[in-house]
């Protein structure tokens, strides 16, 4: 139902596994392609919606979140996913990432994090490690990396998770949970860039990632902060934080209780009442 397309990704790219998990998640949730919208920016990750049969708004670099937010507010009956890379989301789109969390509109945000700008051949992204030499930072990156999960938690996100393209079974479950979460749900998905990141390889991730134990308490905020900062020799994957929060729609009566905005009928004569203020 979600179909197969020829891709422009390199053989061995982590995006293949993420795409496969996305299709599995949507299939397992029993969604029809016409009920799902993916908003994406620009980059290798942002091409994802072209390789799956769902509604797609493939907009500008860094701008996946604002359209996704508005699509959900306009038609709350759609399942809305924002899908983009680490550069797109944490660099150009950093402002929208932060304020999207604050707004807490019910969208799932899947961030393909390969710690490099892959589409433009290997410049440092906001998640490239300090000191790493790249095709642009010949002497190594000077700036500190963004810690996305920690940032999301401190901004008040109610659903924060990390996945790994090498653990498809877990990733599919994470995606389903994020889509079903009532509010903004982000998954930072670690993936190798086989062509342009020679440091964070599949092997590099494989040696470090571990699944959070079954008894991990995802409702404990201070523990979540600690877990979100765990990086280096051991990198946790799974749902790091998951608590209910009122969404944007929950807080606006006519959005919550009324029909979806697209289903409303409009009559210009209704607006005539506004003239009374001036008379």
């Amino acid at each position: 139902m979600f179909e197969t397309y020829e891709t422009a990704w390199c053989p061995g790219c982590g995006n293949f596994a993420i795409l496969a998990s996305l299709k599995d998640a949507l299939n397992q949730l029993g969604l029809d392609p016409s009920e799902v919208v993916i908003s994406s920016g620009i980059g290798q990750a942002a091409k994802t919606p072209h390789y799956i049969n769902v509604n797609t708004f493939n907009g500008l670099h860094g701008r996946a979140v604002p359209p996704a937010t508005a699509i959900k507010l306009s038609n709350k009956n759609l399942t809305v996913i924002a899908e983009s890379g680490d550069g797109d989301t944490y660099g150009e789109g950093g402002n929208h990432f932060i304020h999207g969390i604050r707004r807490n509109v019910n969208i799932a945000h899947f961030i393909h994090d390969n710690q490099i700008y892959g589409l433009t051949k290997g410049q440092a992204s906001p998640t490239t490690e300090k000191g790493q030499k790249t095709s642009l930072q010949f002497n190594g990156v000077i700036a500190e990396p963004v810690r996305p999960l920690f940032l999301a938690l401190t901004m008040g996100a109610g659903f924060v998770a990390r996945g790994f393209a090498g653990d498809r079974a877990q990733l599919t479950e994470l995606m389903k949970a994020a889509i079903n979460y009532n509010g903004y749900a982000m998954i930072d998905i670690l993936q190798p860039c086989v062509s342009f990141n020679k440091v964070n390889t599949f092997q590099w991730y494989k040696e470090r990632v571990y699944r959070l134990p079954d008894d991990y308490d995802a409702t404990d905020f201070s523990n979540a902060l600690k877990t979100a900062m765990e990086w280096g020799d051991r990198i946790p994957t799974g749902i790091i934080y998951n608590v209910p929060r009122d969404t944007y729609i929950d807080q606006v009566d006519f959005l919550k209780d009324g029909p979806a905005l697209v289903d409303r009928t409009l009559d210009p004569m209704e607006a005539k009442q506004l003239l009374e203020d001036f008379i």
């Binding site: 908003s39 699509i71 306009s74 402002n95 929208h96 932060i98 304020h99 905005l261 697209v262």
Partner: peptide, 19 residues
Amino acid sequence: VEDEIAAINMALGASYAGV
């Protein structure tokens, strides 16, 4: 919203969605 870039991209998303 946070800036005018978000404003127009949201407006376009809303229009795409049908309002």
